[in-house]
Write a protein that binds this DNA or RNA. Structure first.
Length: 301
DNA sequence: TGAATTGTTATCGT
DNA sequence: AACGATAACAATTC
């Protein structure tokens, strides 16, 4: 892996494009299969409990595999039943799925759980930091009620985004990271989106002009689509197969020149998260005495 | 060694 | 009171 600007290890975590890539890769192997066993080595991973998840999933068939926000959603059906139960898997920071055609072989690190399938294969959940979570529910709507809009669905229009922005007075970056507003962005893509939109992470959501709202809307969709096209981003061992890393413009590139203007990319902290910006392309809004603010730039994509 | 990561929850401030 | 910002937390890697 190439060293990144600023040096040191920069952990990667699965965000929307990485989860989408994982779901697409596993869908053909999992849809149609019946789960024959669930084994957990880490009790806290399961909600409401290991036993409840086991009762819920063992013996059921996987009829769909989808993504909602950063969740992997297994739609399950018992023998002769319509789909009426779901298993949700959130990889959080360091969770990985691995495939074991021969469960006895292979060198898998940090195995926290596995699912046996009726074709003899085994799906492993590996997670060095034990943050990943598995839950079982018979009410998918309730289980995902806390999640905001999917940024790649048709319902996510510029007008909808404008409403989400203007009904809050929040810093842009924490807003983009808030899963209850727009679902799926994490630290990497929030930075890339704000750069692509020419907006400062501390700009106020209710002070964006129509042109800036539209730039942000376009940036969210363009960055996520491009990342999915490249199978997501890999920066370290956690998520190994992505090809998006060479296309990141600011994340992990502190000190390197902005691709547009050549100014050195800066690293700052916003909402306890490391944040990367081009100080020239993403000027900080100047607070005016009247409470309004003036933005320079913006609108570039 | 401590900085880095996500999402939830608690707490502080306006 | 309601909202937004901040901090702590879980756990591990190098």
């Amino acid at each position: 892996m190439p060293p990144l600007g600023g040096g040191g290890i920069i952990p990667a975590m699965p965000e929307l494009p990485e989860v989408e890539t994982i779901v697409r890769a596993y869908r053909p192997r999992l849809v149609g299969r019946r789960l024959t066993a669930y084994t957990s080595r880490w009790a806290k991973q399961a909600s409401p409990s290991v036993a409840a998840v086991r009762r819920g999933v063992v013996g059921k068939r996987i009829v769909r595999l989808d993504r909602r926000a950063k969740y992997i959603v297994f739609t399950l059906a018992g023998p002769g039943e319509l789909p009426q139960s779901w298993m949700l898997l959130h990889l959080r920071m360091s969770g990985r799925l691995e495939w074991a055609a021969d469960p006895e072989k292979g060198r898998h690190r940090h195995i926290r759980a596995w699912f046996d399938l009726d074709d003899g294969n085994r799906l492993l959940l590996c997670d060095s930091r034990k943050f990943a979570r598995i839950s079982f529910t018979t009410d998918l709507n309730a289980a995902t009620a806390h999640l905001g809009i999917e940024p790649l669905e048709r319902a996510f229009t510029a007008a909808r985004l404008e409403h989400l922005l203007h009904t809050r007075a929040r810093q842009l970056k924490p807003l983009l990271l808030d899963q209850s507003v727009v679902a799926g962005l994490g630290n990497i893509y929030a930075d890339e989106v704000l750069y692509a939109a020419g907006l400062h992470p501390l700009a106020r959501s209710d002070e964006l002009s129509p042109a800036q709202v539209r730039a942000l809307w376009r940036a969210i969709r363009a960055v996520l689509r491009k990342a999915i096209r490249h199978n997501g981003t890999s920066i370290d061992w956690i998520y190994p197969d992505g090809g998006m890393e060479p296309y990141l413009k600011v994340y992990g590139r502190a000190g390197t020149p902005c691709p547009v203007c050549g100014t050195a990319i800066e690293r700052l902290r916003v909402a306890q998260r490391s944040t990367h910006i081009c100080p020239r392309c993403q000027p900080r809004p100047v607070r005016l005495p009247g409470g309004r603010s003036r933005h320079r730039g913006g609108g570039r994509l």
